[in-house]
Design a protein around this nucleic acid. Structure first.
Lengths: 346, 346
DNA sequence: CCAGCCGTGAGGTACGTGCCTCATGAGCTA
DNA sequence: TAGCTCATGAGGCACGTACCTCACGGCTGG
């Protein structure tokens, strides 16, 4: 009989009783509605603390009778990683529907800050609780993010961050660590010799970070490596292919190649055309169709990956926390760097 | 006005109307209660399909007014990985309380099938919706699992599976792939030479699998490696230390060492005592305190890891699916093999 | 002194599902 | 044909929270 009481979770009713106020007042405090004297609010807060009350998520979502709406904004283009990210979102959306979670994806022109800012401007509180963007580091985007925050829409950055803005959270890997890891593996695989570095664009924060990490470890632990580059191939298949072809021609003794950006299918094509696939140690990023094939064939040795499903999971968890008004650490969800060889392909 | 209708999710009421039956009948079908003619059930099923109805999780949990109770049973002892797993469960339990999720952990004597079976026998429907166990491959355990299933308690295996039992699901990494990965890295790091293999026990399925994977790739891709062992050190720190010490003494030319089991602090101690830390390539399993330290100091080169938080997340998701009667693929949640070097330590 | 505002209490409905009881009618058996 | 079982309908309460209206008393300013 009374043995069930200690097992029961505290409810708003318990809080009201404990605080000596009415249910309505507890409700006002809990949901930040006006009309409560600070002293009264204080009583409620301490009752909440004393009872260890936590709002019941199920009931809460049910009572609002409204989905949590999360709007993802990704760059468009032929970038396989972004396509995988979009797929992961759609997958999550299917199971999310049972948890009152409505996920939506739009693509905007890649590397076009104005397009991203404009799309952000169209969002509002009614249609969207949280926007998740792959940020371009730009003033217009920063202003759009801050504007949205003022309108009450939480903004989260994904993959690429936007510091000094009103974004509530960043989800992504530590790209400096990824660069360090690449250097560490490359150093042990090659021993010494020439290693070429290719980036998408040095204007992208994540590529910059990878480069910095690689250089740091290469200099400290593998001084016998001779670094060539970095070069920019703009995440483009064709450009990467022709560039890599030239590199292989000019350096018959090339031992290793680290591609920090996309365009890996071009890279593989160049290696195969030169008959050097499997002879040059290659480290690339993002496990997508081309890199998967490259690992299998032996043209690529290692792929460093940020798991799209994991990132989406973290983003959704963050969005939910933000929407429910929980306090959130901007970098609370460290995404693990996936390392793939031919032998642990998923 | 009517623009909201297409946006609304279907409810049981909609299903009832569409199927031309009452709410009660829909409820009977949904919850597998008796008293529905097959033909009628069929009508309900097709209405569900037509409307794409999914039971609202929030409402469902709320209505049961009852937590989902998940009982974890882990081996006891000084195994750091199991301790980390227990910590991960407690962490998850704290946030789970808001989602009507009650997680509990008990430890039973390690490598003692009878103890595990006995503990399983104490569970029942009332106190537990789902049991999650690190299985020992044994007949008594298998019988206990099957008995529990008959009592209506779902059983899930974690880390180490129990095939040919009534367990509904297995959560863990692909240990054969882990072994292959270890061999692939070891081969590239060493080039050739003597590599020693240490397991906890060859009676453990996961260690067996790792061994098989390692041998497969070593034989195929790195025939110049000379494999020594496998030896059994029973996941014990002291035993591993003395054994490794002997190994290092007997083989001054030892190039690599793959420890498939626990006891890594002993391994590191032996390496340091012999002055060979950093000179022998070492690959170990599970990122815990000793292996973390080993990576940092350079005594260990690579740690293959199964992320405890990820495994618990998958286990909880699976438990929820099982409890709600969703169909579940026994191996639906592939856990990624984490690969850690000094450079991407979390 | 009264109008007006503010803080608060009281009580209700709704969200979608789970689970219960009771009634009804159809089909079966003896 | 009485009595039975079984499939189904009808309806209601509960879960814990969100959000609404209305009322009441105290306080303030003019």
């Amino acid at each position: 009989m009374n043995d069930k009481l200690p097992l029961r979770r505290a409810t708003v009713h318990d809080v009201a009783r404990q605080a000596g106020v009415s249910l309505a007042t507890v409700d006002r405090v809990l949901n930040g509605r006006p009309g409560v004297r600070p002293a009264t609010a204080e009583k409620v807060e301490s009752a909440i603390a004393a009872l260890d009350f936590r709002r019941d998520l199920s009931a809460s979502l049910l009572a609002r009778a409204r989905d949590l709406r999360v709007q993802f904004i990704l760059p468009d283009g032929r970038n396989e990683f972004m396509a995988n990210l979009a797929d992961a979102i759609l997958r999550r959306a299917r199971t999310g529907i049972a948890e009152r979670l409505h996920l939506d994806v739009v693509r905007v022109k890649a590397m076009d800050p104005a397009a991203l800012a404009a799309r952000l401007g169209q969002l509002d509180r009614k249609s969207c609780d949280c926007a998740v963007i792959v940020a371009t580091d730009d003033e217009a985007v920063r202003r759009a993010v801050d504007g949205l925050a003022r309108k009450g829409v939480a903004v989260m950055t994904l993959v690429s961050d936007l510091p000094n803005s009103a974004r509530k959270m960043f989800i992504g890997i530590d790209n400096v660590a990824a660069g360090r890891t690449a250097a560490s593996l490359m150093g042990r695989f090659c021993g010494g010799g020439k290693v070429a570095l290719i980036a998408g664009s040095l204007g992208l924060r994540d590529h910059q970070d990878r480069l910095a990490g690689f250089r740091e470890v290469a200099a400290r632990e593998f001084p016998q490596l001779e670094l060539i580059g970095p070069f920019e191939a703009h995440d483009d298949r064709g450009e990467t292919e022709s560039f890599a072809a030239g590199l292989l021609r000019d350096h018959p003794d090339l031992k290793g190649l680290y591609n920090m950006g996309a365009g890996n299918s071009g890279l593989i094509a160049a290696l195969e055309a030169a008959g050097r696939a499997g002879k040059v140690r290659v480290i690339a990023h993002e496990l997508a169709e081309p890199t998967h094939a490259g690992l299998k064939s032996g043209a690529i040795d290692v792929v460093l990956d940020q798991n799209p499903d994991g990132e989406i999971r973290a983003a959704v968890a963050g969005a939910r926390a933000l929407a429910l008004g929980h306090p959130v650490d901007p970098h609370a969800e460290p995404i693990e760097i996936g390392i793939f060889l031919r032998d642990n392909l998923r």
